[in-house]
Amino acid sequence: MTVDGAPASAVIRRGLVLSVLGLVGIGAVMALAILGTPTEARQGLAQKIFYVHVPTAVVALWIAVPATGIASMLYLWLHDPRLDRFAAASAEVSTVFCLVVLTTGPIWAKPIWGTWWTWDGRLTLTLFLFFLLLGYHTLRASLRDPVERGRFSAVISIMGVVLVPFIHLSVYLWRGLHPQPIIMKPSAPSLPPEMLRTLLVGFAVFTIFYVGLVTLRYGIQLAQDLREAADAA
């Protein structure tokens, strides 16, 4: 994604351009969702949040968090500081995306499910992921030595990735035979083409935004690391 050795400011600039592009795209998705997409018959306007909520959730859970885990595993093996920097940047963006998912979800759930919060499996899993990410950042922030910080963060990130299926299984079984909340979310394949189009644009835009933010964060970290190395020398 980024070339190490290129000056940090070039990376930051690239990250800024991509992030702004992502932001403009998010604005476009919102406009498209409100003006260019038919309103869902049963849920009405509340369903519009779907075009922000679902892409953020998918990018966070299927791209950002796995990317952090893979980079952490590779870091323990290769000890390349670029991997640690990337893992940290990706984890930070994952945290923000999880927070967006956890905020937009209840806003939608209040009118549709009739409650802000429910201990539904997917909801609980996202909440746990959010707490795992917070723990990851707390640990990083409290360690000074960059090599130690890299190793410890990689260890906790790998353990977190292994924990996810256990959380998934246990929160589902915890509910036992209780009925799942009636999910009126239209499932993707049955979406009318206009809705599917807006959703797909949403996926693309949020992926660009993720890449932009990670690049930006990576560049800032690179600048910090270079500065520290220069100070130490």
């Binding site: 723990g135 409290s142 959380i167 246990s170």
Partner: peptide, 24 residues
């Protein structure tokens, strides 16, 4: 133990990992 607030850091990191065994 390498961090400054070890006593506080352990529960923050560990409690999410304790939840699946606790649920069961």
């Amino acid at each position: 133990v390498k961090t400054r607030f070890a006593e506080l850091m352990l529960p923050v990191l560990l409690l999410p990992f304790m939840v699946p065994p606790l649920i069961f």
